[in-house]
Amino acid sequence: MKLALKELKFYKFKYVLVTLILFLLAFLVLFISALAQGLAKENISGIEAWNQEQFIISEGVDDSLTQSDISEQMDQIEEVTIEGHNIEFSRNTIDATNSNIDIVFTNTDENIAPVADEGRFPETSDEILLNYKLTGEGYEVGDTVKIKDSDTTFEITGFTEDIMYSHTSMAYVTDGGMDRLDSSSIAAVALPEDTNGISEEINNIEDVKMVSNDVIKNAIPSYQAEQQPLNLMIVFLFIISAIVLSAFFYVITIQKSSQLGILKAIGTKNGELVKTILVQVILITLVGVVLSIGIMFTLNTVIPVSMPFYLNTSLMMTVSGLFLAVAFLGAILSLVRIVKIDPLDAIGGE
């Protein structure tokens, strides 16, 4: 430990540079991860907010909730299950101050609907709860939203965070509220789980099928298209980090091979030298990652609400843990080198 700290202190510049590179890599990984999470939230947060495992939807609509319409089959469905929550969907456009905004209206019952983060849930047919992102358009509780090309208006009673479907903000209204909208229909019946093994019976109903939560999410075209390249970038960044760290520590170890050989010759155990490298790797990684987390949190407070950017503790912990693992992997070459150093090479011989 002492050896590791003394070396870090003496060669400040060299190790500050390594830390800086690690910080930049960690920052990039965190930024892209937060972006990926933000984009994921924009696609599927509305579905996740329901916290349901199974959905009964129309067949032949590519598992898309917005295209699904099971209104006609509801009598047959209700004969099979009584535990489901009916989900009505209606895609509409509202007149906003600067532009028109598409909104997915839904009326899911309060048992599975999200809690209002600001204000309250709608109680009458002319009230509406909006996705928090719309506050970026200047909307506040008490304001009125107007459906485009129609006289229908709703008064905003509250906002809640992260209710989006396929990059479209969602809005909750009452059953009466849904009736005031054109083209509303029952898109799905949500079930907490297939507890009674009813999937076979449901699938036997014409033009209806039961699918899992994941199927619904993956059916959103933008979700997979966005997540795959971003996740690939994150994986590559981790690989690059491992290679960069590996190269740095290996070169540094080669540079001090002679010193390490002398230390071994005078009786320093391999374990002590291995510990030295590990302490340095862990310290440099932690400083780099903690710095990047600090910058990310600062950034999170200034980034506009409309930007798809989502930062949470579990993401931070995961990335920090992965970086430590990657740094450890990168240090393995150096550790092998240390163990193989022959003290005789350091002191010379005939």
Binding site: S258, Q259, I262, A265, I266, G267, K269, I347
Partner: peptide, 16 residues
């Protein structure tokens, strides 16, 4: 290794 540490003292051509 332990013996080199405790019972043998090395002095090299260069101080190292």
């Amino acid at each position: 290794t332990s013996m080199r540490l405790k019972e043998i003292g090395f002095i090299f051509q260069s101080s190292h």
